[in-house]
Design a protein around this nucleic acid. Structure first.
Lengths: 247, 247
DNA sequence: ACATTTACTGTGTTATTTACACTAACTCTG
DNA sequence: CAGAGTTAGTGTAAATAACACAGTAAATGT
């Protein structure tokens, strides 16, 4: 024991050698992986790609890519999302970094995970413009296939994160079209939180925040009674920031 | 515009060349930086080192180091904390990754930030065992010097994080000795949250959680009335997990 | 014993959360 | 066009949690 201590002291003071296991990680790369949530037809979905390259060729995976030399992580995430979906100007947030030494079979790749929330359906079609994927699909979060790498873990942590965040920040609106009904908004909350909410309490609380603008306009093209449409009022949201919203 | 589009299509389909700006980041390294909070003598402090190497030689900086080839990020954080303080078995958590391309003047270093909370004073002395720092000091968070790199930013984000976390998880106890008084506990909350709390409400709420065990024991060696000592009861904490604690 | 310092305690007020069920409006069908 | 079917929309009472607030108790030192 004393011997080991002496050895260590010598090592640090002499600065002459380094143990192999102490070598830092060189020649590594890092990537961004995105958990991209979408809401459509009452289902919460995420975007998956079918890989066209080894490793994990033909497996489903989260969309992701390597970070370039001269871009920041946030810039990189935006670029990658844009390349994979054709979309820009989306609320994205870094939430965790995954770096197990063996998470990638071909060498060390530390992956910085982001999530994004976006409105599906109708107006904006997805136009992926990259060849590293055979195809991209929206998949219901309740029905995920086996994922490549540690992507299941990355997804789990991402879902956990937005569960917490939806109570503090108006991220639910990012999933909805500009004009939406209170029932649609409640659906989003219920899907993300994974539980039913009381309709009256939900509406009471949502309206009490004063961040919804009643558009004096009704849904069109629906069977049965049409609901009032609302729009999210970003300016009024400022005061609300950071407060807990419980359901 | 059409021309650009055609060019892009060709680029993706032919797969023959790559634009320089599209090169991924190779030969990069990553590091861990730690914001290590300590509580001592009524002050909230963090551990800083005075750098002994370029760049930023002689500047104060957060303790941090490069990740090794065969360790996970969490392992790396624990190792680095241990090397810098001699301590182990500390609650640590990854909270953000900083990766601006120019955050390190000598090349790209993506840094994964962790925070740790630890009890100071008395029993365990700090024994840093590394030469890359001239010295390590505990510095009051209210009185930080200019920090190297983007470490001020890393610190700010870390403080923000534990402000939020202290309301959900019993991290305050990590800062205190095993036996502590309610007044000490309140001090920790007040320092982290940066505001005064009402004594009666604080005690009422803390005791109502049922995670404190009254030790039937009093402080010793203090002038004036001695306070009752408590211990944190980990088992009873389980039910509390995840609930918001507001002050 | 007296001054000093910190520990400790309770109540009333207000705001928030929760639980709970019926009517209104519209559409479709026969 | 009447009636069935479906979703939109609304209020109240009880329980719980948050907040504001001040004096007594216990120990020490002089």
């Amino acid at each position: 024991m004393n011997c080991l201590r002496l050895f260590q002291d010598f090592r640090f003071k002499s600065n002459l050698f380094i143990l192999k296991e102490e070598l830092p990680q060189f020649n590594s790369t890092f990537s961004i992986d995105c958990v991209i949530f979408g809401f459509d037809g009452g289902e919460l979905k995420i975007l998956l790609i079918e890989r066209n390259e080894e490793p994990f060729k033909d497996w489903w995976a989260l969309p992701g890519n390597l970070v370039r030399a001269n871009e920041s992580l946030d810039q990189s995430a935006s670029r990658i999302l844009n390349e994979l979906t054709g979309l820009g100007d989306i609320y994205m947030e870094q939430y965790y970094t995954f770096g197990d030494p063996d998470r990638h079979p071909q060498g060390r790749v530390v992956s910085i995970a982001y999530y994004a929330l976006l409105r599906l359906g109708g107006d904006k079609a997805l136009k992926p413009i990259s060849t590293y994927a055979k195809q991209a699909h929206w998949v219901n979060v309740k029905d995920l296939p086996k994922l490549a790498f540690d992507h299941q873990q990355i997804f789990d942590k991402g879902l956990e994160k937005i569960k917490r965040r939806i109570k503090h920040q108006p991220i639910a609106f990012e999933l909805l079209p500009e004009k939406f009904t209170l029932t649609q908004l409640q659906n989003v909350y219920e899907l993300i939180l994974g539980k039913k909410l009381d309709k009256r309490n939900f509406r009471k609380k949502m309206l009490s925040f004063g961040v919804l603008r009643d558009l004096d306009e009704k849904q069109k093209g629906v069977s049965f009674r049409a609901a009032t449409l609302y729009r999210f009022d970003k300016r009024k949201y400022a005061k609300l920031f950071g407060k807990e919203i419980s359901f």
